[in-house]
Simulated assay, not measured.
Amino acid sequence: MSRVNRYERLNALLELLAERGRIEVDEIAEELSASAATIRRDLDHLAGQQLLTRTRGGAVAHAVSYDLPLRYKSVRHADEKQRIGARAAALASRGSVVGLNGGTTATEVARALATRPDLHETGSETALTVVTNALNIANELAVRPQVKLVVTGGVARPQSYELIGPLGTKILDELTVDVTFLGVDGIDPVAGAAAHHEGEASINRLLAARARKVVVVADSSKIGARAFARICAVEELNVLVTDVGAAMEDVRRFEERGIEVIRV
């Protein structure tokens, strides 16, 4: 692995810890082309933020179900997520109402929508209405004059910046959405779409239920993965936008369930 900067290294450390549950300083130092002293300092820094527990030779995750804060999830599969975001954004028609939940891939959809050239040629006209429960997406879109932004209520979840809880459902119950783009923690042709946190799954389920069309945006690492709380059944989904790393056998299984699969 080529040498990376500190931010990328912190991301990589947490992602590796999420995958393995335990990491050792010497092994990780070699993988990340960094000195053992540097890795120790990084682990101490992350331990100070209570993101891991230090051990004599490395670190362990706090829990089996390890949910990284969103700010540490941006490095892995970044190119794939950007391609997915751009392709998914093209599915939204000018003038439509779009639903977006949280997560890194959904954020890339929001960024692609915000920079779509045809949505800038509006004058004072609203080109797109976006309904989201994600504070980071709302923050990025609030400065876009061509976007009418609707933010659900709720209690902010620090790990994902998503607003969850019954306050958000009151607003969503009153709205109709043309297309909802769902970022997920797992998507399976049998189990459907799922999230690690039940509160996120609940509000995401409603975002999907209020939409005429539901598009799951997920890189290939999420395909076949299962998470704690189901968002919706596979029969409630219309399109899956993923990357070319998705196995054709998995693609076929989704298509057999009536889902259009777009690989980018």
Rank of each mutant, 00 (worst) to 15 (best):
D118N: 12
L43G: 07
E162W: 07
R230M: 09
A134E: 08
R71P: 05
I187G: 00
A34T: 11
E256D: 14
G95I: 12
R56I: 08
R6F: 07
D219K: 02
I84S: 01
A59V: 06
A29T: 03
R76M: 14
R22M: 06
L13P: 05
I231G: 10
K170W: 00
A86Q: 10
A247W: 01
Q82V: 15
V147G: 09
A127N: 09
A36W: 00
V261W: 08
T126W: 11
V215S: 04
D243K: 00
D79F: 12
L100M: 09
L119T: 09
L14A: 08
V143G: 08
A193W: 13
S202V: 14
A246R: 00
V215G: 04
G102R: 03
D219M: 04
L51A: 05
V190F: 03
V190D: 15
A142H: 11
G183I: 09
R3F: 09
A138K: 11
R54P: 04
G165T: 01
F254V: 09
V109K: 09
P166F: 14
A193Y: 12
V239K: 11
C232Y: 02
L113R: 06
G245C: 07
V4P: 00
A209C: 03
T38M: 05
V150A: 14
R3K: 13
L68H: 06
A127K: 08
E260P: 01
L91H: 03
L119K: 10
E256C: 10
E140S: 14
E30I: 07
Q49D: 13
G224Q: 01
N101P: 06
G258K: 10
S96H: 11
V60C: 01
G154Y: 00
C232P: 02
A110E: 10
V75P: 11
A247D: 12
S160Y: 02
E198T: 13
T152K: 06
V151I: 15
Q82I: 14
D67L: 13
V130T: 04
N5L: 04
Y7M: 08
V234F: 01
I28N: 01
A225K: 01
R22Q: 13
T126K: 05
L70D: 11
D26H: 02
G168V: 12
R210W: 01
L13E: 02
V177F: 06
F228D: 09
R54G: 03
P166Y: 13
I187V: 15
N5P: 13
S74P: 07
K213V: 02
D219Q: 04
D178N: 12
N11P: 12
R210D: 01
V150M: 13
T115P: 02
A227T: 11
I187H: 01
L182S: 11
R111A: 05
H62R: 14
K213G: 03
Q82T: 12
I28T: 12
E235A: 15
A18L: 03
H196D: 13
L13G: 04
L70T: 05
V109S: 09
R41F: 08
V60Q: 03
V241C: 09
P158I: 00
A191E: 14
R111W: 05
R71E: 15
F181S: 07
I231S: 10
V64E: 15
I23G: 09
R257Q: 15
D118M: 10
F228N: 10
V214I: 12
D178K: 05
G186S: 03
P117N: 11
I137L: 08
R56V: 11
A59N: 03
F181H: 03
S124C: 06
Q50S: 14
I23F: 02
S160A: 07
E140G: 08
E260V: 13
L128D: 02
